[in-house]
């Protein structure tokens, strides 16, 4: 009896709720934290990596140990949690990795389709809408489960400048100055609420982002094996958007500079033996 309104996604419960969608959102609140801070000069985006361990061969994972700036950021992305969707848009994902991959694929296709028809980079909100239209479809049309993924979108376009959006499995989206999804998101958001100021520099946004992250994550010291980090800025010369996905050594250097940890180069890849953080161990491979 208890399962009556649980089993199918597209059926309302008598209280007017869609349980499967709510369960999907619940799954995400156990996933690795993703956090972003907007400033006038650019946006900082950090994501907690859950799949770690010394036996994990990172060189085989998508992206491996790569990263980089501008075009370089395409060649490998961040790996697990941070992806470039288009030249002007980065996304941080929390939830089921395999669902996330298919969403990333969809949005990259949509962005290229826009570039093809209009010869311009897709406006950030339009891409968010495209993706949310699809996510919403899975809460309404028969027999399929919703995407177990929430995203933070970090981007720039000529109409509205730097923008930060968040979307959830129901297909809702909203714009933010600083926000967080995944494990401990509510405590992180209240920390951000305290410390956010409207006139942050990029430097300050980066440090606010990482400092809040360090308080949110369970582990005491941050390091590149547990964290991914990226920024969206404007190229000082061309005034065009410039995505930068930090390479592990760059991130460690930044963390050391902010005194938040940072793994020394010879320690990179050793990591902890198990996935740390909110989710229980059984979920490591599924929900990150």
């Amino acid at each position: 009896m208890a399962r009556r309104y649980d089993s199918r996604t597209t059926i309302f419960s008598p209280e007017g709720r869609l349980f499967q969608v709510e369960y999907a959102m619940e799954a995400i609140s156990h996933a690795g934290t993703v956090l972003a801070v907007l400033s006038k000069e650019g946006i900082a985006l950090a994501a907690e990596k859950k799949v770690t361990g010394k036996l994990l061969d990172l060189s085989l994972a998508p992206g491996g140990q790569m990263g980089g700036e501008g075009n370089q950021a395409w060649l490998g992305g961040g790996g697990e949690k941070i992806f470039l969707l288009n030249n002007n848009i980065l996304a941080g994902l929390a939830g089921i990795t395999s669902d996330a991959n298919s969403l990333v694929n969809f949005s990259r296709n949509a962005a290229q389709q826009h570039l093809f028809t209009y010869d311009e980079d897709i406006p950030v909100e339009m891409l968010v809408q495209r993706l949310c239209d699809m996510k919403q479809g899975y809460t309404q049309f028969g027999g399929l489960r919703p995407f177990g993924v929430a995203l933070l979108y970090v981007g720039w376009d000529s109409l509205h400048g730097f923008q930060l959006y968040q979307s959830d499995p129901s297909g809702n989206y909203s714009g933010w100055k600083a926000t967080c999804i995944g494990a401990n998101h509510s405590s992180a958001t209240s920390l951000l609420k305290q410390d956010y100021k409207d006139d942050l520099t990029l430097e300050e946004a980066r440090s606010l982002c990482l400092k809040t992250m360090s308080k949110t994550m369970d582990s005491t010291k941050l390091g590149s094996e547990k964290l991914e980090f990226a920024t969206m800025t404007l190229d000082p010369k061309t005034k065009q958007p410039l995505a930068k996905i930090y390479r592990p050594n760059e991130l460690d250097a930044l963390l050391r500079q902010l005194e938040l940890g940072g793994t020394s180069d010879d320690q990179v890849g050793v990591g902890e033996a198990t996935g740390g953080g909110g989710g229980d161990e059984g979920n490591v491979a599924m929900s990150t």
Partner: peptide
């Protein structure tokens, strides 16, 4: 425009 589309998709999928 066609080739730009194809090359961008190649770069994303192949990561090179």
């Amino acid at each position: 425009e066609h080739l730009r589309f194809r090359v961008n998709m190649y770069r994303m999928k192949e990561e090179r």
